[in-house]
Design a protein around this nucleic acid. Structure first.
Length: 424
DNA sequence: TGGGGCAAT
DNA sequence: ATTGCCC
């Protein structure tokens, strides 16, 4: 059996742990740059604030009743780790799927005991971390996800729902469920399914996998089996090293300033290097891209990218920064109002599969070892003493590309000087 | 008016 | 290489 544990309104719940006065109020958390609403309390949902809605599009009358917070990823990341720690006490197989969702394998456990077991787990998460979670149980990840959805929606389940793939109850549920509510089926795919006469989850389950593979892809074929209760996506599938690594940010405000873009690209390249070293990989190319704000039709639009091959496969931030800066030189244009810059590491490989370019001279083992040691030390310092303890090149304190986050709460759990204050 | 990743084309 | 799609 597989359990999907999903935190309820996760970012909002994290904020409420440290600000209980937010309980019962319409609270939303916005994406980076205070752009869109990405987490909503039940109360703000019933005011009609939709998921992903741009904050500035909320009706001013509604907006006045809401509390909208900037994202506080330091807090959410730490709370997420605490939740995962509790889950790990209940089964050795925890696969973290996203910041607020984990798949747990309960293989070998008695299925009859699982609902009770998960109730205990759920209460412990609430008691130890303050975060409310819901649990869906079934034999495939897709059904576990649907069971989780029911655990949230139908109060009879008290937060833990189990779906037997062969039961009448499951059949009835799937028969009334529109395909677009299945995990992995959204607008476009749903519309195409409709043209094949498939409107409900049950019809998809009963369809021919081969037929669907022809019209869609292996992903949709798998989904049919998943709906039948056959688990097709192995847990460690998600722990595989990434094939590409991207770091990009919109700027806090538009900028024409080349220095802003240079700094942003350097910081992004360094961050990407960190991610790359974490998965013990090497990159063989890096792409740099810049673009204007697509929504500003009053300004000239401009979007450009360039791929820079790296002379040798590397995870050294200095190499990545150098290449990224060279790339920016090629695509930067004066007089353009830029909104976003980013880099993508491509052609990733591991240390054993490094291919030498035709013209590349192999680096001496001694030199390579010194470089690796330097990067390892850099990562360790930033890990143990907080990020930005050591950085390559020093960005200016005030710049246009720093994110907007005017309503961010304190980083209660990760910064000594932002601890919650118990003295009134 | 977000960020990240993958697979199909 | 680029685009579309998904969360």
């Amino acid at each position: 059996m597989i359990a999907l544990v999903d935190c309820n309104n996760f970012y909002v719940s994290c904020e409420r742990v440290f600000q209980p006065r937010l309980e019962g109020k319409p609270v939303g958390v916005m994406s980076n740059n205070d752009g869109c609403v990405v987490a909503r309390s039940a109360e703000i949902k019933s005011l009609g604030v939709a998921m992903g809605m741009p904050a500035h599009q909320i009706d001013p009358h509604i907006r006045r009743q809401c509390i909208l917070l900037s994202s506080n990823y330091a807090l959410y990341g730490d709370m997420s780790r605490r939740v995962t720690d509790v889950l790990s006490q209940h089964t050795p197989h925890v696969d973290v799927y996203s910041i607020d969702e984990s798949f747990l394998s309960f293989e070998g456990f008695e299925p009859e005991t699982l609902t009770d077991r998960c109730q205990v787990m759920r209460r412990q998460v609430k008691r130890d971390t303050g975060i409310p979670v819901s649990v869906g149980l079934s034999t495939s990840k897709t059904l576990a996800k649907l069971a989780n959805h029911r655990a949230k929606k139908e109060s009879i389940f008290d937060g833990v729902a189990i779906m037997d793939p062969g039961s009448e109850d499951t059949r009835g549920y799937l028969q009334q469920l529109p395909v677009n509510e299945i995990w992995g089926v959204a607008g476009r795919s749903a519309a195409r399914l409709h043209t094949l006469g498939i409107e409900t989850a049950w019809q998809l389950r009963e369809a021919s996998p081969k037929h669907l593979r022809k019209h869609f892809s292996v992903v949709m074929e798998r989904l049919v089996y998943e709906l039948r209760g056959v688990d097709c996506i192995p847990l460690d599938d998600m722990a595989q090293p990434k094939k590409q690594i991207m770091v990009s940010r919109s700027f806090g405000r538009l900028t024409q300033n080349k220095t802003d873009l240079q700094e942003a690209v350097r910081v992004h390249a360094a961050r990407a290097g960190e991610k790359l070293r974490k998965q013990a990989g090497l990159a063989q190319a890096i792409m740099v891209f810049v673009r204007t704000n697509r929504f500003r039709q009053d300004l000239p639009s401009h979007s450009k990218n360039v791929v820079i091959p790296l002379p040798h496969a590397t995870c050294d931030s200095r190499d990545l920064i150098r290449a990224a800066s060279a790339g920016l030189e090629q695509i930067f244009k004066e007089g353009i109002w830029y909104q976003k810059a980013g880099i993508m590491l491509m052609d990733l490989c591991d240390h054993d599969n490094e291919q030498l370019g035709l013209l590349a001279e192999p680096m001496s083992d001694e030199k390579r070892e010194r470089n690796e040691k330097l990067m390892a030390t850099l990562d360790k310092l930033n890990r143990e003493h907080g990020k930005n303890t050591v950085r390559l090149g020093i960005p200016r304190k005030v710049n246009a590309w720093e994110l907007r986050c005017e309503h961010r709460t304190p980083r209660y759990t990760t910064k000594w000087d932002e601890l919650p204050n118990a003295i009134l």
